[in-house]
């Protein structure tokens, strides 16, 4: 939007400038045709489907035949006694995830980058990305076993003088276990992009810095971190822009009613509703509600990032 209003204030109009730009860079426009076509056909055409959030959608009647109910399902969700709690839990878990899940791959990549033993570095890298590939059902099974009252986590806790308990049923530990297992699963996987980016740093810069007598800490601050800054900023913007969404699968595998207070999130709530009664519209309405908030946050994050670092998504 900003973009259009500033172009209007220029001497020549938008269209003549576009025409000139087109003539000058014809091949760029040509290249963008298949890309735009893809987005229009496969992303924008199906978007008419959002109307089912405002309908009492019944597959047998189709979108054209189903009854419009306006904001019924949005109100249904927001007035539910569980709405506030699930929204709060979703946001809190995502904020934790932002603090730990976002930073840990960066720190891990930086630590790996400082490693001089090249072969060792490669082995650690390769091992660390393995948990990403193990199915969630199995990972959660392992976690349940470890946190049960006879599990290895309790052996450790007992050694440090704590009493044995079922840790997943402890409402105060649930979030730590949820976020912690996520960090563990995606630490190595998430660091790959940073490692790739670090390899593009100019070795001459490091050489020059060493000659100037800059220590490792200074090199880290002045060369290494600026190299990964654009990608790190981008990742941060994305994470902020998905603060309202977490998939239900992991929660469903880990939670029990005993920890609903901190564990029940929007998607698991919608899932349970789906078990009671098949309803496309309710899910679509909640999804749309989340997307709107996410998009607003994304726009805000993008704007602040541009102000602060000069990096942004658009």
């Amino acid at each position: 939007m900003v973009n259009i209003s500033t172009t209007r204030s220029h001497k020549s109009g938008f269209l003549p400038r576009l025409k000139k730009n087109f003539i000058q860079h014809r091949s760029l426009y040509l290249i963008s045709i298949p890309i735009v076509l893809y987005f229009v056909v496969f992303k924008y055409i199906p978007m008419f489907g959002v109307v089912i959030a405002f309908q009492d959608y019944r597959p047998g009647l189709g979108i054209l035949g189903s009854k419009f109910v306006g904001f019924k399902y949005f109100i249904d969700f927001l007035t539910s006694p569980n709405a506030i709690r699930t929204i709060r839990n979703t946001i809190v878990l995502n904020v934790y995830n932002l603090i730990f899940g976002y930073t840990s791959p960066i720190i891990f990549a930086l630590l790996l980058n400082e490693l001089r033993l090249q072969r060792y570095k490669k082995v650690v890298q390769t091992i660390s990305y393995m948990p990403h590939f193990i199915s969630l059902v199995v990972v959660c099974g392992i976690l349940k076993d470890f946190t049960s009252s006879y599990g290895i986590f309790n052996d450790l806790a007992e050694f440090f003088g704590y009493e044995r308990q079922n840790m997943l049923s402890n409402v105060d530990l649930y979030r730590a276990l949820y976020v912690g297992s996520g960090v563990w699963k995606d630490l190595g996987w998430g660091s790959i992009l940073y490692l790739a980016t670090l390899s593009s740093a100019d070795p001459n810069l490091y050489e020059a810095a060493t000659i100037d007598g800059a220590g490792r800490w200074k090199q880290l601050i002045h060369i290494t971190i600026p190299t990964i800054m654009p990608i790190a900023t981008l990742q941060l913007i994305m994470k902020v822009g998905s603060i309202m969404s977490i998939g239900a699968e992991k929660t469903i595998l880990l939670y029990t009613p005993l920890v609903y207070e901190k564990a029940d999130i929007i998607s698991s709530f919608v899932y349970r509703r789906g078990l009671q009664e098949m309803n496309f519209s309710f899910g679509a309405a909640v999804g749309l509600f989340n997307s709107v908030i996410n998009l607003c946050l994304l726009v805000a994050a993008n704007w602040s990032a541009r102000q602060m670092t000069g990096e942004s998504m658009w």
Partner: peptide, 24 residues
């Protein structure tokens, strides 16, 4: 130098948030 860079980016990013869902 590509003038439509920004609008295109916004159009693309938008699709990361809104989709018609499974049925369409």
């Amino acid at each position: 130098s590509f003038m439509l860079r920004k609008p295109m980016m916004i159009i693309f990013v938008f699709t990361m948030y809104f989709s018609g869902g499974l049925i369409p």
